[in-house]
């Protein structure tokens, strides 16, 4: 498996988009930390941008890469290797290289300007989000053979998780404001990896306490080791479920 990843990585690392992505994140992070004044403020602004750009770039890049690698995968499929191995290698290759770009572009500045647990959470969240959206990208890619369609689905997925979902949640919360919604909101948050990541970081920033009783409730949930563990587990589910589903489809489909 690692041999294959090596070759997938060879290919991606030299991809100019990855380099551009790294530089983009790097400039953004440094700029925000310089502008923001305090480390916390910098982290907050960074969080917003990370949660918007990382999913978008991850999902679009991974989808494009998947379609561009079709013939390569064909070549590999004619070789004596399991399809699942090819698929996982592709996945890990893309996810790892995007994560590496994120670690260099965001992780390093965070380490330098805001070395704190919150910073760590931001970086971990960013990496997890990358893995989630690459998995979603692969799912979009195996659903349809048509590249344009696949990228369309990927963009829709991003649009849904980054924007539409929150709008729907707001609508639901508003419509059912007479009901006790604490638990429901928690569940709704878990159903969107972007929200989950945002809440995980936010609750470790100082602003969390200001969210009043409900905020404190969530903080007590997410703040405990158990809560962090569960949040991370849900996040991993967000990686595993789409990844395994797409792998299953990939194994059964024609190339």
């Amino acid at each position: 498996m690692n041999k294959l990843i090596k070759y997938v990585l060879y290919d991606i690392v030299r991809n100019k988009i990855i380099v551009a992505y790294t530089l983009f994140l790097l400039l953004l992070s440094i700029g925000l930390f310089q502008l923001g004044g305090s480390a916390d403020k910098g982290l907050l602004s960074l969080l917003n941008l990370v949660l918007l750009t990382v999913p978008l770039i991850s999902i679009v890049f991974a989808t494009t890469h998947f379609y561009n690698s079709y013939e390569f995968m064909e070549l590999l499929v004619s070789q004596p290797i399991r399809r699942s191995r090819i698929f996982m290698s592709e996945y890990l290759g893309v996810a790892l290289s995007l994560s590496a770009a994120f670690l260099v572009g965001v992780g390093a500045p965070v380490l330098f300007f805001a070395p704190s647990t919150t910073g760590l959470f931001l970086v971990v969240t960013g990496v997890l989000i990358t893995f989630v959206f690459v998995a979603l990208a692969f799912l979009a890619s195996v659903i349809t053979r048509d590249k344009a369609k696949g990228i369309g689905i990927a963009l829709l997925l991003w649009f849904y998780f980054a924007l539409i979902y929150d709008g729907l949640v707001l609508l639901i919360l508003y419509a059912f404001s007479d009901y006790p919604l604490e638990q429901t909101t928690l569940a709704l948050t878990a159903l969107n990896p972007v929200d989950l990541g945002r809440v995980m970081v936010l609750l470790h920033l100082d602003v969390s306490a200001m969210m009043g009783y409900t905020g404190a409730l969530y903080k007590s949930i997410f703040g405990s080791l158990w809560g962090i563990g569960i949040a991370l587990a849900v996040m991993l589910l967000w990686v595993i479920v789409p990844l395994l589903s797409s792998k299953r489809i990939f194994q059964k489909r024609d190339l």
Partner: peptide, 29 residues
Amino acid sequence: RSQIGYMPQIGRYPENMKIRQVIEMVRDI
């Protein structure tokens, strides 16, 4: 498939890989 050699109609490969790497990779496999 280790007993089969396949030559596709149009062989497309990862653009950034060198011939050496492609051959090495298949050998690795």
